[in-house]
Design a protein around this nucleic acid. Structure first.
Length: 256
DNA sequence: CGCCTTTGACCAGCGC
DNA sequence: GCGCTGGTCAAAGGCG
């Protein structure tokens, strides 16, 4: 959950609604000229386009504000639920937190029919145990980092009790070595979208990004990955083409 | 042959 | 003290 919020954080910040209308800066690539060259476009047309884009930007800002307020409300609910935990459970959690810093959990959606408990995250893990726990019918698998013998990093993987297609991975301890490959080192997080057999791989190192530069770089890579996945998705391309052609048809219709 | 998973046994902590 | 539960160990066997 925390890693999920951490992932969402930069995105939410990147889309933080702004009340400053001067910051609205429609991309030149969006300024479509239908049926005539940019030289022929009159100031009136450009003004109309600008107004239209401003309106659209305003609508998107409203949507983002709504999403942001929903996120805030959910966060409050989560805090309330956390506070309503029975005292015994509270003590247990407090003890666990005191003894083990750097514990992070993440959920990964997989194929529900798959029995695999593997969460790919770029590291090499060796399974050393499996146990059926009281609160969940599906077994919990215990993994230890096998890349370096002295590495204290561990993880537990278990299917969600509510949704068997979701794997809950709990990471404990820090890796005392670099990720196995140079690619992993330069790419702290990679996200696969679309296919059912894909796994979301997250770098859950407790200290997060080493610097603001790394964070910005991560956001850039994440955006590229998402854009790449979307452009490779035929259904998305089809929807996009449909939206653009619909828009063009509207404009032509309005001009005629 | 080395590395991995599986699985039953064992251990420690906690509540009653 | 006893039973329950979660976490770990280690032997056995599979696989490339």
């Amino acid at each position: 959950m925390s890693s999920f919020i951490r992932l969402l954080g930069p995105l939410i910040l990147a889309f933080e609604p702004s009340m400053d209308s001067e910051r609205i800066n429609p991309s030149p690539s969006l300024a479509l000229s239908i049926g005539r060259s940019p030289d022929q476009a009159s100031n009136g047309d450009l003004e109309a386009k600008l107004n239209e884009l401003s309106e659209e930007n305003k609508r998107l800002n409203e949507m983002v504000k709504a999403v942001y307020s929903n996120h805030t409300a959910l966060h409050h609910q989560l805090m309330e639920l956390t506070n309503s935990v029975p005292p015994a459970e509270k003590r247990k959690r407090k003890r666990m937190c005191a003894n083990m810093t750097g514990i992070y959990t993440t959920s990964v959606r997989i194929d529900a029919s798959s029995s695999s408990l593997v969460v790919r995250d770029g590291y090499h893990w060796r399974k050393y145990g499996q146990k059926v726990t009281k609160d969940n019918p599906s077994p919990r698998a215990y993994f230890r980092c096998s890349f370096a013998p002295s590495c204290p990093a561990k993880k537990k993987v278990q299917r969600s009790a509510e949704d068997s297609s979701v794997l809950i991975a709990t990471y404990e301890g820090e890796h005392n070595h670099d990720p196995p490959t140079a690619r992993d080192k330069s790419l702290p997080c990679f996200v696969s979208l679309g296919s059912s057999d894909s796994a979301v791989a997250l770098d859950l190192r407790p200290h997060g990004f080493g610097s603001e530069v790394e964070c910005v770089e991560f956001q850039r890579i994440l955006a590229e990955k998402m854009a790449s996945s979307l452009t490779q998705d035929p259904s998305f391309a089809e929807a996009l083409a449909s939206a653009i052609s619909g828009r063009m048809f509207q404009r032509l219709h309005a001009q005629s």
